[in-house]
Amino acid sequence: MIPAQFDYVRPTSVQEASQALAGDDDAKVIAGGQSLLPLLRLRLTYPTLLVDVGRLSELQGVHDRGDHVFIGAAVTHDEVVRSGVIRDACPLVALAAATVADPAVRHRGTFGGSLAHADPAGDLPAVALALDAILVTSEREIPASEFFVDYLESAMHPGEILVGIKVPKLGPGWGFHYEKFHRTAQAWAIVGVAAAVRRSNGSIAEARIGLTNMGSVPVRARETEARLRDLDLGEAVRQACAHAAEDTSPPSDLHAQADYRRHLAQVLTHRAVRAAAGSP
């Protein structure tokens, strides 16, 4: 790891961090570093200053706040996976976090970091989107549906710091599944599907589906969600899921061509929905 030279500060409050960022246009925020360090190592980015927010107390902890769970932005994936609060109240977050890379990365990488990085191939943006999470920054609250703007680009402006994420509790009757398709355990998702399904009397009352790596931002499979509403479990679910790739523009890259990703989105959405609905 031989990055170009940079300065490093570790502020003690969000306010101090914001000031540090405001004073330098080429400053970057670092927490777990699992996205930034590879870019530094390859000299694909040349920040002059790294502002380490990883230990800010405001960014720590998982808190049950009645109708939602607040997850501090600097909470690591490993902490997410082990959190009883998250497993009880919003298990989809833990299910997806458990698939992130490998144990070493999960012990360093943070929940907030992977959202702020806004990589559509990351597992957690699609989850945040599917759950209608709200991203709390140093300045405002941004719904997940407005947070992911473009490839590696969020709605946050320079100097704004992600403090935490409010994940709404969905209440009883909901089932969850994250279906990740990748070639090796540590590899990025070729396609991932985050599904939350509410069952009622043996049929699907409501479904929310977020897709990983099916465009420049994480996307909802809205057409499939609409078709699944009040649908009996069975062959019709497969047909509804065949619309999962509509309105997506998946990339063609080394790991998969776009048409294959579209196909996978349909198959995996079906699997994720069935699993979330508790159907074998």
Binding site: L42, T184, A187, L254, H255
Partner: peptide
């Protein structure tokens, strides 16, 4: 990089 040249690990 190893993100693109895929080596299997014990998990695979």
């Amino acid at each position: 990089t190893m993100a693109d040249y895929l080596l299997p690990s014990a998990a695979d």
